[in-house]
Design a protein around this nucleic acid. Sequence first.
RNA 1: GGGGUCGUAGUUAAGUUGGUUAUAACGCCGGCCUGUCACGCCGGAGGGCGUGGGUUCAAGUCCCAUCGGCCCCGCCA
Length: 590
Amino acid sequence: MSQFITKEKRTHYCGNVRVADVGSEVILFGWAQRRRDHGGVIFVDLRDREGIVQIVFNPEAGETVHGEAHKIRSEYVLAVKGKVRERPEGMDNSAISTGQVEVIISELEILNESKTPPFSFDEEDISENVRLKYRYLDLRRPAIQKNLFLRSKLAIATRQYFNDNGFIEVETPFLGKSTPEGARDYLVPSRVNKGTFYALPQSPQIFKQLLMVSGFDRYFQIAKCFRDEDLRADRQPEFTQIDVEMSFITEEDIMQMMEGLMKAIFKACLNKDLTLPFPRLKYADAISRYGKDNPDIRFGMEIVDLTAIVKDSGFKLFAEVAASGGVIKAIKAQQASALSRKDLDGLKDFVAIYGAKGLAWAKVNAADWTSPIYKFLIPPVVARINEAMDAKEGDIIFFVADTPKVVSDSLGNLRLNLGKKLNLIDPDALAFTWITEFPLMEYSETEKRFMSTHHPFTSPFIEDIPLMTADPGKVRAKAYDLVLNGSEIGGGSIRIHRKDVQSQVFSALGLSDEEARLKFGFLLDALECGAPPHGGLAFGLDRLTMIMTKAESIRDVIAFPKTQKAADLMSEAPSKVSIEQLMELSLKIV
RNA sequence: GGGGUCGUAGUUAAGUUGGUUAUAACGCCGGCCUGUCACGCCGGAGGGCGUGGGUUCAAGUCCCAUCGGCCCCGCCA
């Protein structure tokens, strides 16, 4: 057996061999994706991270090489030496980057054999559990590799940008203090301090504020964060944030700096030139026009409030909802004849997910409506609705009458559903929006108290501070989210840097000075030691990568992701541990 | 915590109102083949239907429980 790998150096990646290399001798390493053995000539598709090249074994190469080539099977690891040549007339393969050339092999070494893989690498429809169990093989697939290469570019462009702008990257601890506010913590038992626990960070929030107190002025970190909450298609228990904090700045400064980051990232990764600044939308407007604080503005179909028009229309259902503090709102699907009666009925079930008790619809005709509620409405009301909705013949109007929250949730999601169903969304569009003027806190029915919308260190609008005791829900926060194509990709705020304001916020949240001191004492102390005005933001690197790669699942942009039950099917984590390990930690499973 | 959906050869799927030895394609193994690129042709092996109960003369097919994948609601400051 020759010692190919020790005596020869690779000259090309498989996917990079081109017509310009014709005539030259190349050394390639890669995996055999497919073998086409014609008895005489044998073709092998040799694959590496850059792509595939066809290598050719002719009988003329000699008994040894040709005989060895017969043994090649799927995913064998090969080293080959050969001469690049142009493919014979009419034999080009436009499906691969190297399709105009092939390599006539003179030497072959099988560096390693492979078990028959559970799936082939040019397949698309492989079930997720198989993919995740053999993740190391799944990661051989070009589609996934492409995503991870882009993710890497994104991280590098980020570091480049922040470096160019005078930021310092600081690592903050993974083992920290559990804070009961917010998401559930992942806990790590302390061996040295029996009965106590560290928490993995949900975000470096407090530490980055402390770095501002320390005077670093501009900080960033590409930080792993952990949240022990249920998973979704765009949520993993461990995820990556691009975390940023700046001192002596306003919201404007931060938004501008972040817009610059987005521009740099999209240029570096996709060679796209973004137009700045991004449009802005106040939180209240986002909710009323789109029903969501992460609106997808790639298409219209805005929500229209019809409460004033229908509350006295004589239609009992609408009147009752309006009388009890509810609202009646509607969206309009333009020229939606594609929607069958069955589709319309199905949508009723769809809005029920969001708590809507019903969904009324109306097909707009030249002179009237086809609608289950038409008979309850007198013609002038129908005319006023048509006018408010700007409805034309062939349009379909959807009404929901319920509490403001249910109406927003159901119409906001129905709008997205219809947008997809009716192909109203340009898949290549990049619609950024800043959402501003979030409420500082919202009343929680389950907790029976006000809770921070963002987090308890978010600065209120100074002019709204008097409302803090009188009407806490009305206080606006100096907080902003960046939304891209209906996905929240980042959020941040100006922080509170004065202790008196911080105390007021804590008390509005129902937190006594004592409790606050217990939970965040060191931060409060720090704020009293010359904290500069500061603020920042954090981006979800995974979600951003998802959008840039058009991935449907966050698992497709993370090398080794978890399933919905937060398990790793490959390594079988989490797992039980030995009784000795538990005893060392003074833990007992109940 | 809740709703939905799926689980049948290595993989992807089909399997009628429960009825003889459970289908197909790809993959795999063997043979033939000097230009294919999802190579072709001939032949072959391979599963007892996620798991455990139950109903029945008879269960992928019905019932109960349970495990797991995916999507969603709640949750995610």
